[in-house]
C-alpha cells in the first residue's frame, strides 16, 4: 500500500484494534498519571469543604444516570459523596431517572465500606449518614413542589426501604428547602439539569447546586456555571479524577479509586485518535498533492 493511501483504504477494524491495545495497556498495568487541574471541579470541592451544618441540615444527591453513563457519572458521584460522608454531612439520595435506581443503594454502600476500611472503628450507617428516597416519578412537577412545601418529610413520606422518614436520625430535624446545604446533580441526560435549575429554587434562597456531567454535556453545562446557576462543575471523568486528587491531598491515607486509571486510559485514547486524525489528513494531503 502506498503512503498516500494510508487512512483511505485501511480497514477500520485495524483502527479499532489499535485503540483497544493502546487503552488496554495502562488498564492492565494499572498505570495512572496525575490528572490536569480543573478549576470548575475545585469549586465543587470548595463548596463541600466550606459547608457549615446546623441541626437538620443535609446534602441532597440526585443520581440521574443509568448503566450507559456509569463510566463518567459514577466516579464523579462517588468522589463527591465520599467527601460529604468524610465531613459527616447527612446525604439524601434520590433520582428522577428510573434506570438509576440500583445506584441509589450501591454508591453510598461502596463509599461507606471504603471509608470503613480507611478508618477502622468508625462506621457510616444507613439512616444516620445517608438516606435513600428512591426513584421518584413526576419530574418537573415534583421538583416544583419541593420549594413550595413547608414540610418536606410530609411530601416524601417514606424512604425506598419503606421507613417513615421522621424516624430516621439523619432527617429528624429536616423540614425545609433552606436546610439543603448542597445539591449534587449527576447526570448525562439532556434536560435533567435544566429541570433542577428551572424548578428547584425559591424566591430569596439560592441553593448551592453542583453538577457532574458527562463530557458530551460539558460545553452546555459551562453556560450555567458562567451565569452562576450552578456553583461548581465536574467535567466528565477528568473532573472526577481531579476531585479524587484533591481528596487524596486533603486525606493522605485515602485509598486511590479508579478515576485516575480511567482518566489515563482516556488520555491515551485521545493521543491515538489525534495521531489517526493527523495521519488521515496527511495522507489526504499527499493524495491531493500527487493528483495536482
Amino acid at each position: 500500500m502506498s503512503s498516500s493511501k494510508v487512512g483511505m483504504d485501511l480497514d477500520r477494524r485495524w483502527i479499532y484494534l489499535l485503540v483497544l491495545l493502546a487503552i488496554s495497556l495502562p488498564l492492565l498495568r494499572k498505570y495512572s498519571v496525575p490528572p490536569a487541574r480543573m478549576s470548575a471541579a475545585e469549586k465543587v470541592f470548595e463548596v463541600v469543604e466550606s459547608t457549615q451544618l446546623q441541626p437538620g441540615d443535609v446534602a441532597f444527591v440526585a443520581i440521574d444516570f443509568g448503566p450507559g453513563m456509569v463510566a463518567e457519572s459514577l466516579p464523579q458521584a462517588e468522589a463527591v459523596v465520599e467527601h460529604l460522608m468524610r465531613r459527616r454531612i447527612p446525604v439524601v439520595f434520590w433520582s428522577l431517572y428510573v434506570l438509576a435506581e440500583p445506584f441509589l443503594d450501591s454508591v453510598p454502600q461502596r463509599v461507606a465500606e471504603r471509608l470503613g476500611k480507611e478508618y477502622p472503628g468508625q462506621s457510616w450507617e444507613y439512616g444516620r449518614d445517608w438516606v435513600n428516597l428512591g426513584y421518584r416519578a413526576g419530574g418537573g412537577l415534583l421538583l416544583q413542589s419541593i420549594p413550595k412545601s413547608e414540610n418536606l418529610l410530609e411530601l416524601f413520606k417514606r424512604d425506598a426501604r419503606g421507613n417513615n422518614l421522621a424516624d430516621l436520625p439523619a432527617l429528624k430535624d429536616f423540614r425545609r428547602l433552606e436546610q439543603i446545604k448542597v445539591l449534587g446533580e449527576f447526570t448525562g441526560l439532556q434536560g435533567m439539569l435544566d429541570a433542577y435549575i428551572q424548578f428547584f429554587q425559591k424566591k430569596g434562597f439560592r441553593l448551592n447546586l453542583v453538577h457532574g456531567c458527562t463530557s458530551i454535556a460539558t460545553p452546555e453545562a459551562f453556560v450555567y456555571l458562567d451565569s452562576g446557576q450552578i456553583v461548581g462543575l465536574l467535567e466528565g471523568i477528568a473532573g472526577a479524577a481531579w476531585y479524587s486528587e484533591l481528596l487524596g491531598k486533603k486525606f493522605p491515607a485515602r485509598l486511590p479509586d479508579s478515576s485516575g486509571v480511567i482518566n489515563t486510559g482516556l488520555g491515551i485514547a485521545h493521543i491515538v485518535i489525534i495521531f489517526l486524525i493527523v495521519v488521515g489528513n496527511l495522507s489526504s494531503l499527499a493524495r491531493w498533492w500527487r493528483q495536482a
Binding site: L20, I23, I237, H270, I273
Partner: peptide, 26 residues
C-alpha cells in the same frame, strides 16, 4: 463550538470504552 461538542462527544464515547475494558480486564 460544534468542534468542541464533537470533541467532547468523542471523549464521552471513549470513556465508555475505557470503563468497559476496565470491567472486562479486571
Amino acid at each position: 463550538c460544534f468542534g468542541a461538542f464533537f470533541g467532547s462527544t468523542v471523549m464521552a464515547r471513549m470513556a465508555l470504552l475505557v470503563e468497559r475494558l476496565q470491567f472486562l480486564l479486571n
